[in-house]
Design a protein around this nucleic acid. Sequence first.
DNA 1: CGAAACTCCTGAGCGC
DNA 2: TGCGCTCAGGAGTTTC
Length: 269
Amino acid sequence: MPELPEVETTRLGVRPWIKDKVVSGVSVRCDRLRWPVPDLNHLLVGSTILDVQRRAKYLLLPSSHQGTLIIHLGMSGSLRIAPIEASPGPHDHIDIRFEQYCLRMRDPRRFGAVLWSAQPLAHPLLKSLGPEPLSEAFDIDYLWRQARHRKVAIKSLLMDGKVVVGVGNIYATEALFMAGIHPNRPCNRISKQRLARLLEAVKRILTQAIAKGGTTLRDFQREDGRPGYFRLDLRVYGRAGETCHQCGRKLKSLKINQRASAYCGYCQR
DNA sequence: CGAAACTCCTGAGCGC
DNA sequence: TGCGCTCAGGAGTTTC
């Protein structure tokens, strides 16, 4: 599931291949993603991709045609650099072709999105997003202000894009374990000191995951097809019923927002 | 306003 | 061998 580390890994992998390159053609084999895919032929062909940027889990590809392509990978999306002659697989919905190769988007579950905007940061989907988790804006005073008056589960807060972006189920689960905080604990019942631990845990987990190319569970792959290796570092996610690495007790699981949340009932309070 | 339920989709894993 | 069921989950949308 692409979360911030997977999107950042994709950005870094893809950027050298398409930055400052001219789009020679586009194939949209399925235009029914989360929203209908716009007419990329008309928008992109002949233009130069000026950069590959990221805001939250959105990839932003500003084009010399006075607009920016916005790509979201949803749950199962991935981007690859593929030879033009390589025939597309069943869920390879979109090719953006360059002279020697193409940028190919695959998304089996089609929760992803491809959009076009003249002002991407002002786009309705992006304009109300919270701070980047690895930025200085995401600091303890900010998190404390967000948490102190709310009573939702702390895990819900971490996964709320209006509070902080990019933290999905995997990394929220791991950060809470690292900080020793129970995922279901109401946010207004966590001391500032413990919130500070959580803040550092979020930053550390995301930084480590980016360094390892993200987490590959099933669908995620890098631009060259390799997996990400952070899966080997997961300490609680997907391990309910197995043994806690810290105390040896059995990890439990509960549902928060219809999402599985593995935790250790002894190490996390 | 916040909070929770609902929604999109396909493949994996399971029981029989 | 294959059917039908449940589950996974990002995040926008709807409802209360």
